[in-house]
Design a binder for these strands. Structure first.
Length: 560
RNA sequence: GACCCCAUCGUCUAACGGUUAGGACAGCGCCCUUUCAAGGCGCUAACACGGGUUCGAAUCCCGUUGGGGUCGCCA
């Protein structure tokens, strides 16, 4: 096609591909460095599947000392939800996914929380809507080389053709005899243009359906498709490119070597390969990952933005999961040997794990909240109390004002509580799955929330006679000593038990329970109930040390 | 409908022609234990089906079934 006509279609002063390539020179990274990207369209929140995808890209690129960049695919202005693109980098940062390039909110200073929407990187703009001229360079090239053409078919006509094809059992799409504008003469094109008709640009496919397209996926291996003979739109009537065009142009100029994307793109591979060939560029390697599914009525389906709150990654923040728990869960789905590694390396950072694209499974995983819980519990159990406190503090600031108030008022007290049976290796307590569980674990330590009723206590401890109960309590108030070791402390409770006819030795008791009023466990329970209002608590000795004698005496005096 | 992908315990998966089909989560049981939470030990539980190929198949091939995806001026 002649330049004059091309300019009528695309406008004047369009740079050539060569000129664009001078502006965006190749990266010249050392051998083996992978360049990957996350390229979401700004249509709302970040999906768990997106996090999974970007995590894999992140590992592949950074593990190879390569580059991970963010690109916003905002070529569909109808679907775009304004303002959501800007949320993406911060949300991913909250999961410790750090981009090297792109419109990155924390660009100014990686280690602060300051936001700054400036772009970093020499391959921008990183918003596709700002790259219209760049795409035109490539479309111009295609038009020049008879690999693209304007199409004046109206949406109505296309719809009609589509239903005709369906009715007659034909493949749907703009191909072969159905590609009506494919062979328009220059005169016809000019005539329609002069009439002011709206048009799009279509790629002129060089394939035949009978052809075989072979390609090797990073994850799925060899795949063979029939030839892709449909003349797809590459430039829409709003002058923005379609995904397909934008993809091949951007990933060419931005030097992407590895594309990780959802399996829904698998069937577009023949098209993309063809487009790369048409512009004379080498395609990147593709890895098509499976979706994260959910079971509904016995069938699998993708985690859905609408129906499933857990599809939104923000959900995990709200619930109080450590973000690293979510990452490790996803890592586990991606490379199931991760958990074996984790067992041998309980405290090493997840990035140290040797990630492998080959181990990615190509069937979809069912999302398993229970497994996430288990991972999360393990991670929280490994945190020093100080760190747990700090994380929970940040969490509560945003999601639980009551807890936040307490943490602010008595940080040391709460940290001590959190430290009960912590840092004792694999035997550490594992009763906190997420930060939101903490309130329940600490609340009874605070007098303002501790509201035990006399009558309730009597009911809970109904096996004790009133005189025994008051006797035990009064005695204990006199003998409790904060300086006691755990053994001393236990000995006192045993002695007290004996004094009131409760067996101090469990074995002995089990042999002949009828000889006693009860056992030491019953007596310990008296203190547990009075001091905590609960039947189940962590280690009472440690708990009491933290409560302090004054508070203990006060609580033990409830029945006075 | 056409094309493509997928198929091992309830779940995530290991196995790369020869294993009593392994692990983790969940479940169950026992032990430990002043209550929990843990921890220790153990148990239940899977190769979708049918044909081949082979001395030998979860593994390779073909088919069936089931599930998923794609077939837009959406990405």
């Amino acid at each position: 096609m002649k330049l004059e006509l091309i300019e009528k279609l695309l406008g004047k002063n369009i740079l050539s591909i060569e000129e664009q390539k001078i502006k965006y020179p190749s990266r010249n990274l050392p051998e083996g460095c992978k360049v990957s990207r996350f390229a979401p369209s700004p249509t709302g929140y970040v999906h768990l599947g997106s996090l999974y995808q970007v995590l894999i890209s992140e590992r592949l690129s950074h593990q190879s000392n390569g580059i991970l960049f963010l690109r916003i695919e905002d070529t569909d202005q109808k679907r775009e939800i304004k303002g959501t693109a800007e949320l993406i980098p911060a949300m991913l940062k909250s999961f410790d996914i750090i981009f090297d390039e792109g419109p990155i909110a924390y660009a100014c200073a990686k280690d602060t929380n300051e936001t700054c929407l400036e772009e970093i990187g020499k391959y921008g703009p990183y918003y596709q809507s700002q790259r219209a001229d760049i795409y035109k360079s490539f479309i111009k090239y295609l038009l020049e080389n008879d690999l693209a053409y304007p199409c004046f078919c109206t949406p109505g006509e296309l719809e009609e053709q589509h239903s005709f094809q369906e009715k007659n059992g034909l493949r749907t799409g703009y191909y072969g005899e159905f590609a009506k504008c494919r062979n328009l003469s220059v005169e016809e094109i000019e005539k329609k243009l002069n009439e002011g008709k709206s048009f799009i640009i279509r790629f002129k496919s060089q394939n035949k359906f009978e052809d075989k397209v072979k390609y090797t996926d990073m994850i799925r291996g060899n795949i063979e498709f029939p030839g892709y003979d449909i003349d797809v739109p590459i430039l829409k009537s709003d002058n923005l490119p379609t995904y397909h065009m934008a993809h091949i142009v951007d990933d060419t100029l931005m030097g992407t070597t590895h594309v990780i994307r959802g399996a829904e793109w698998l069937s577009s591979v023949p098209l993309h390969l063809q487009l790369f060939k048409a512009i004379g560029q080498k395609p990147p390697k593709y890895g098509h990952i499976a979706t994260i599914d959910k079971l509904e009525n016995g069938n699998r389906r993708k985690l859905s933005k609408r129906k499933d709150p857990e599809a939104n990654v923000e959900y995990y923040h709200e619930q109080g999961y450590p973000s690293v728990a979510v990452i490790e869960y996803l890592l586990n789905i991606a490379n199931s040997n991760f958990e074996d590694w984790r067992r041998t390396q309980p405290t090493t950072e997840w990035r140290e794990f040797q990630f492998s694209a080959k181990k990615l499974n190509n069937s979809g995983a069912l999302f398993d909240l229970i497994k996430l819980d288990s991972i999360s519990k393990e991670i929280i159990a490994q945190m020093p109390a100080k760190d747990l406190f700090a994380k929970a503090f940040e969490w509560s600031k945003k999601y639980d004002s009551e807890l936040f108030g307490l943490m602010k008022k008595e940080p040391k007290y709460i940290e001590d509580i959190l430290n009960i049976e912590r840092n004792i290796g694999k035997n550490s307590r594992k009763d906190i799955t997420k930060y939101s569980d903490i309130k329940n674990e600490i609340i009874y330590f605070f007098d303002e929330y501790f509201d035990l009723k006399k009558a309730n206590v009597r009911t809970l401890l109904s096996t004790f006679s009133d005189s025994d109960l008051t006797g035990i309590l009064n005695d204990y108030k006199n003998i409790y000593d904060e300086k006691d070791t755990q053994d001393d402390w236990w000995k006192k409770i045993q002695d007290l038990s004996e004094k009131y006819g409760y067996c101090a030795n469990m074995k002995l008791y089990k042999e002949a329970p009828e000889k006693f009023k009860g056992n030491v466990s019953d007596v310990a329970r008296v203190f547990r109930i009075l001091l905590t209002g609960r039947d189940q608590t962590p280690n009472m000795y440690l708990l009491m040390k933290i409560m302090g004698k004054e508070r203990i005496i006060k609580r033990l005096s409830l029945l006075d």
